[in-house]
Amino acid sequence: MKTLCPICNGFTALASLCPNCSLQLQDTGRLADYYGDYSPYREIDDAKKDNGYPDLSLRQCMHVTWCSLCQMEQIVAVDEWASY
């Protein structure tokens, strides 16, 4: 089964709150895009194999988020949608 991230594909916006202050977190993109210059061009499932998260088996997309008040970065798991 193929899956897709509703955030990456623009179907919905990330709606996640900072665990410290409850301010809306700002989505700064997929975690895999931060690995290096060519990481955005890497196969998505391949990038999930070595990031330290169970996102491949759980069918999740890991997003880096930022809280502008706390100045803290958070990793948020987004459940992917099944696509046929």
Results as ranks from 00 to 15, higher is better:
9 N>Y: 04
25 L>Q: 02
59 R>S: 07
71 Q>F: 01
40 P>D: 05
83 S>T: 02
72 M>K: 13
44 I>Q: 11
26 Q>F: 07
8 C>Y: 01
47 A>E: 11
17 L>F: 09
18 C>Y: 09
62 M>E: 06
60 Q>E: 12
61 C>W: 00
37 D>T: 13
68 S>F: 06
32 A>G: 11
18 C>Q: 12
1 M>P: 05
23 L>I: 14
42 R>E: 13
21 C>T: 10
57 S>R: 14
35 Y>D: 09
64 V>Q: 05
25 L>W: 01
44 I>A: 15
80 E>T: 01
16 S>D: 12
7 I>A: 00
52 G>Y: 06
43 E>T: 13
40 P>G: 03
35 Y>H: 12
74 Q>F: 08
47 A>R: 04
53 Y>S: 03
35 Y>E: 09
60 Q>P: 03
58 L>A: 13
14 L>C: 05
41 Y>F: 14
75 I>H: 10
71 Q>M: 03
35 Y>N: 07
10 G>S: 03
32 A>T: 08
8 C>H: 02
70 C>Y: 02
9 N>H: 09
11 F>R: 05
44 I>V: 15
37 D>I: 12
40 P>C: 05
41 Y>A: 12
76 V>L: 01
63 H>E: 01
53 Y>E: 04
33 D>E: 10
40 P>K: 05
65 T>L: 01
45 D>S: 13
56 L>Q: 10
19 P>L: 08
59 R>V: 02
73 E>C: 06
49 K>P: 03
23 L>C: 15
39 S>C: 08
37 D>C: 09
59 R>A: 03
66 W>L: 07
48 K>A: 06
47 A>M: 11
30 R>H: 15
14 L>D: 03
8 C>P: 02
77 A>F: 02
16 S>K: 15
32 A>M: 13
28 T>H: 12
81 W>C: 02
49 K>Q: 12
21 C>K: 06
57 S>E: 14
12 T>H: 09
70 C>G: 00
74 Q>S: 10
53 Y>K: 04
84 Y>V: 00
79 D>W: 01
76 V>I: 02
9 N>P: 03
29 G>T: 09
76 V>Q: 02
2 K>I: 03
48 K>Y: 04
45 D>Y: 12
56 L>K: 10
29 G>R: 07
52 G>R: 05
50 D>F: 09
66 W>H: 08
40 P>Q: 08
64 V>R: 06
18 C>I: 11
16 S>N: 11
34 Y>Q: 12
44 I>H: 14
35 Y>T: 10
69 L>Y: 09
44 I>T: 15
82 A>H: 03
4 L>A: 09
59 R>M: 05
48 K>P: 00
48 K>F: 06
26 Q>M: 10
3 T>F: 07
23 L>K: 15
12 T>M: 08
71 Q>S: 04
68 S>Q: 08
58 L>S: 13
52 G>C: 07
38 Y>H: 13
57 S>P: 08
64 V>L: 04
64 V>H: 03
50 D>C: 06
63 H>R: 00
39 S>H: 05
31 L>R: 10
13 A>E: 15
38 Y>W: 15
61 C>S: 02
27 D>M: 04
24 Q>E: 14
29 G>F: 09
76 V>S: 01
67 C>I: 00
65 T>F: 02
62 M>S: 06
71 Q>N: 06
69 L>R: 10
6 P>L: 00
32 A>Q: 10
30 R>M: 15
22 S>K: 14
59 R>T: 04
44 I>F: 13
34 Y>K: 11
47 A>G: 15
53 Y>Q: 05
